[in-house]
Design a protein around this nucleic acid. Structure first.
Length: 487
DNA sequence: ATTAGGG
DNA sequence: CCCTAAT
């Protein structure tokens, strides 16, 4: 199992290596930093920057490819490497726009710990704040309208700092290297911003596609066809493979529509387009805030929702499970419960609730791969059931993710992992069913922990029907003698 | 206050 | 995710 995974990775590695012929392999963090600094120092020199970029991307990937021995770090490596590549490429287009972001992501490299990433991401609570914070110039705002879906997708994934930095810089255009060519930049900066913002999201699919588009533009402009194209692609594909992209199709369709819009904007720069979309922004936010469907945005909103992620709209239109019973209890209970009850039952009366700024959606915080891995690590360290500890120590920065959430997630992970284990090869051949949210290494860890800690449904039975235990393969058989509790 | 379990 | 019962 693991050997398969490794050999597969090795093959990919070889492919990548073959494609990079010109540049010597210079692994090491120092080189990477140097490259970054180099970029920062001379952003205006086109060719140098380009080489630097290409070099940077390749080295980055190269470096991370070497991490394949570490099952988990490997995943991060892919993720981060692709992110850095994209980011650096973008840097070239946007001048010093992204310097802050670069220093974070680029220098991070291997050292970029999950905590940093998550901490970065965690700083955002409200998506709407992002939009509100941006006073954008026409083009920027226009495009942002179209990429609002990634924000929705992973609300926590778009750091406000990066976002605001980006847009402020662009509007002020205080980038030294590009002031002279505002024309050529303007067309691209849209894509750049979009890519950056999306690359921050855990869904690699978005930034990926846009990034490719970006590279295409790049090549068209400079007649440069570097290996970075292929390198970036393969790494990105890996990311896609590893990332928990439960929602391939919606993303793709969204991206397609985005590209269309982008090109049209670039070519025509029609005011009609801009105005149309500018009008749509409040509409969409209105939708988000009041959880309603609007005719124009309906299709997009639906696409946005990954799958099980249509939190409030359906929950209010439909009673949602057996909740109505609660009404009876509500009268007897405290105001606390009254609030939650009114939320779930009565969508019209939500004036009280919507007023509160901290009305952050308790519903649906997408679990990212990073979070999942952190959770698994925490369980491995502190044990199953110590969810308060794990929460405090590993998810301290996340206001959401209560201990209960962690437990629920773990429960789901167990389920999905076992399911994934059972299906395996059959599904792999059919990309149609490519619902493989979890990277194999992670699944492996989950399964290991699952065998050790038989969390869900601790049957008081000493021996279990063999079919019940999915993974008794190479691993020593653990008798589930643990956690015999009540009943 | 935390956890397990069910919906 | 939400809620409840049991510790």
């Amino acid at each position: 199992m693991e050997t398969d995974w490794k050999s597969h990775s090795m093959k990919k590695l070889d492919d990548v290596k073959c494609q990079r012929v010109d540049q010597p392999i210079v692994p090491g963090l120092d080189d990477e930093v140097t490259e970054v600094e180099h970029l920062l120092a001379e952003p205006k020199i086109e060719h140098v920057s380009v080489d630097g970029i290409l070099c940077f991307g390749k080295e980055n990937i190269e470096k991370h490819l070497k991490m394949e021995d570490f099952s988990c770090a490997f995943d991060y490596g892919w993720k981060i490497s692709s992110g850095s590549t994209l980011t650096v490429c973008l840097y070239y287009f946007t001048g010093d726009l992204l310097s802050g972001l670069d220093s974070i992501r680029g220098q991070g490299g291997d050292d970029l710990k999950l905590e940093v990433l998550d901490g970065l991401l965690d700083e955002v609570d409200e998506v709407d704040d992002i939009d509100a914070a941006h006073d954008l110039s026409g083009a920027c705002e226009d495009f942002l309208l179209d990429i609002e879906f990634p924000e929705k997708l992973s609300e926590l994934d778009c750091g406000p700092r990066e976002g605001s930095t980006l847009c402020n810089s662009s509007s002020e255009s205080h980038s030294p290297g590009f002031s002279g060519r505002s024309n050529s930049v303007s067309g691209i900066s849209e894509s750049s911003i979009a890519t950056v913002r999306e690359s921050n999201s855990e869904n690699g699919g978005l930034g990926k596609r846009v990034g490719c588009n970006l590279r295409n533009n790049f090549r068209r402009k400079h007649g440069c066809q570097g290996p970075v194209m292929d390198v970036g692609r393969s790494s990105i594909e890996q990311v896609q493979d590893l990332d928990e992209s439960d929602d391939e199709k919606p993303l793709v369709s969204l991206i397609l529509s985005n590209q269309k819009v982008k090109s049209s904007v670039k070519v025509t720069k029609g005011d009609t387009l801009l105005r149309q979309k500018r009008l749509r922004k409040p509409t969409r936010r209105y939708i988000e805030e009041f959880s309603r469907n609007s005719t124009m945005e309906e299709s997009k909103s639906h696409k946005i929702q990954p799958q099980e992620e249509f939190p409030q709209v359906p929950s209010e239109s439909q009673p949602r499970r057996g909740r109505p019973k609660k009404i009876v209890l509500k009268s007897e209970l405290e105001s606390d419960y009254e609030l939650s009850a009114s939320e779930s039952e009565d969508g019209r009366k939500r004036t009280k609730r919507s007023k509160t700024a901290c009305d952050r959606r308790k519903h649906q915080k997408m679990w990212t791969l990073v979070e999942v891995i952190k959770l698994v690590d925490g369980i491995a360290k502190y044990g199953v059931g110590r969810w308060t500890n794990i929460k405090k120590l590993l998810f301290a920065s996340s206001t959401y993710r209560t201990p209960v959430d962690l437990r629920d997630k773990w429960r789901n992970l167990l389920r999905s992992s076992s399911a994934q284990e059972n299906n395996r090869r059959e599904v792999e051949n059919h990309p149609k069913h490519a619902v493989r949210p979890l990277p194999k290494p992670v699944v492996r860890r989950i399964r290991e922990l699952a065998t050790i800690h038989p969390y869900p449904k601790v049957s008081s039975v000493d021996y279990v029907p063999s079919s019940e235990q999915p993974t008794t393969k190479g691993t020593p058989v653990y008798h589930r003698a643990r956690k015999l509790r009540r009943k």
